[in-house]
Design a protein around this nucleic acid. Structure first.
Lengths: 339, 339
DNA sequence: ACGGAATAGGCAAACGTTTGCATACCGGTG
DNA sequence: CACCGGTATGCAAACGTTTGCCTATTCCGT
């Protein structure tokens, strides 16, 4: 099938031995090599188009130059942006990124982790499923570096974690809606089983004024479910003046419900969401939202993992990143006298 | 650092030798192994949490179980969808996917290809840059299977290629605009240096009626460039009734130009694009567009590559996928008497 | 009783690297 | 001249697998 040039081939052509070739190509010090021979080796390697076999060198304890990243939803821009940013960091240090989609399925997650270990990756970045703590135990056991992003490993201690301020997201959004005069708010959320994510709703409630009414609705983590639940919520609460989407993926379907119901966004109904999908401010859309700056999140996670791989770090790190409120015409400012 | 269990450890615990363990774990036939010993080996492996080292077995000619995919723009949903679909196919066969962003930079592409070969991937899927033919020569030389997606390898023969019908996209769009009565159309395109992509404009022109006017504008492959060029085009051609975006990435910025100029999409100006970014039909947006069905594209490419890896295939394959016209309220139907 | 399957499993060579150890030459110093 | 440190390179063991080649026992038919 495929035929690769090996050190042996290079050594033969340069008239020396594989040991010497290895030293030259890796530019190792602690060994004397004449300029003449070095040049011959380099030439031979280049002429034969020698490409080192990473798998073989990793057997000798070298870096595999491979990082695995597990995300729960590839179609969710929040996660693809994290990957994008991480990849950009890793390539600078010669690492390749294996990107895996768990589809939020714990069984699939377990499987993927196994495969990644089998590839002997140098490190893992993961946004875990509900069973993440259990599934990642093996990673810790074999001693592979890992950084958790976004969601926590529930029931586990002492891991490295880079995340957003979920409570803050909810709170900032709630504050903005309160300031704009909204008192009856539909909240669309996801019952993920991950306590940390529920803080979005908690934050929203905490920021709302005491006389406010929050109508909570929960659906699956998909645009379709978001659409259906939004229609239902609007039907059941025609008095609501605003809809707050806790998750952009549900919002994507949800925002299509208003057209369906003949409601004009920013006039008949105010809409806001957590996250910055590209549709939020493109074309006719101008949605108020909370930017979680996921590019920065990905960069931080990648940098932390690299640090761990290179130097190790005894004490577990935890980084919480603030979110940024972005105003938009999708939220109407209700005058005092209107209420 | 990390400490993995090896075949030797398992063999010791099971009271046998590594050879036998290997046979058992890989379920190789052609060798007799008593049920008793097999059970002991399996138990030992599971208790010790043995995880095979793929790198070592690939040294012996086994599959690396690793596929590389190169795309020019990670932030472009067209490509992320291709990856998403491909990943989904590959995992079913136990392959991991290394996703790499070339940023359309030939030097980076060359670098990435080198790294992937160094990982001894079993196959490569690539949407090449302008220098793709040159940069992928080495892939062919070492005999690694490769499938090209979307753009061609210009100046090269006999490779496997899965692509969309660029001419057809332009033609279908032009036809639709003609039927809706549009005669003065701004075309926003990308001077990529890739002839195949220019067929989009050619198709548009071919479908337009003879008395039509096409105003072509070209910009870089980014939303920002798309925005600027659209503003300029609108300034220079206030008589145009429609704008046709050849590339969704430019369109993303471009569609924000209309708000800026006080033009209402679907009323004052008609807008259409090639591609199906998620913003096109979300919330207030309802853009007519040409769906290239990239999920299907990714699936086909992955399936073809798998086929090549498993069975090989002498004659190079070429698959061209049709695009689908999706109507939308962004295009106004101009009445005869209005003209 | 004997030859030959069939059953069962050990041994060691290879895959492509990295690296410690050994060798060998040279010039200079005591 | 014996010794030493510096220079330059070869040799071979290991890393964790896979697999071809042995050996040894049992069982059956003649």
């Amino acid at each position: 099938m495929s035929r690769f040039v090996t050190l042996k081939d290079v050594a033969e052509k340069a008239g020396t031995t594989i040991g010497t070739v290895s030293y030259v190509l890796n530019d190792r010090k602690g060994r004397y090599i004449s300029d003449e021979l070095r040049k011959k080796v380099l030439e031979a390697a280049s002429e034969l188009h020698y490409i080192k076999c990473n798998g073989a060198s990793s057997l000798k304890g070298m870096d595999r130059k491979l990082i695995g990243i597990l995300i729960p939803q590839f179609e969710n821009q929040f996660f693809t942006r994290i990957c994008l940013a991480a990849e950009d960091v890793f390539v600078r240090y010669g690492y390749d990124l294996i990107i895996c989609d768990t589809f939020d399925d714990p069984a699939r997650e377990k499987d993927i982790i196994h495969r990644l270990l089998s590839q002997r990756v140098d490190g893992i970045i993961i946004t875990p499923t509900v069973k993440g703590a259990e599934n990642t135990r093996i990673v810790r056991d074999v001693g592979i570096n890992m950084v958790v992003v976004d969601r926590p490993l529930e029931g586990m201690e002492g891991y490295h974690w880079v995340t957003t301020d979920n409570y803050g997201c909810g709170f900032s959004g709630g504050e903005y809606l309160r300031e704009c005069g909204h008192r009856k708010i539909i909240y669309i959320g996801w019952k993920s089983g991950i306590a940390d994510l529920d803080a979005r709703e908690t934050g929203l409630r905490a920021a709302s004024s005491p006389d406010s009414e929050i109508y909570p609705y929960y659906a699956d983590f998909s645009p379709e479910a978001g659409f259906r639940i939004t229609v239902q919520a609007l039907d059941e609460h025609p008095d609501a003046t605003a809809v707050f989407f806790g998750f952009n993926i549900q919002a994507k379907g949800g925002v299509n419900a208003f057209r369906e119901k003949g409601l004009s966004i920013g006039k008949d109904i105010s809409v806001m969401l957590i996250g910055s999908p590209e549709w939020a401010n493109t074309g006719n859309n101008d949605f108020a939202h909370l930017d979680m700056e996921e590019l920065e999140l990905g960069r931080k996670a990648a940098a932390l993992l690299l640090e761990l791989i290179r130097n190790g770090s005894p004490e577990p790190n935890r980084v919480i990143q603030d979110c940024v409120l972005v105003e938009g015409s999708s939220v109407r400012k209700i005058q005092k006298e209107e209420r």
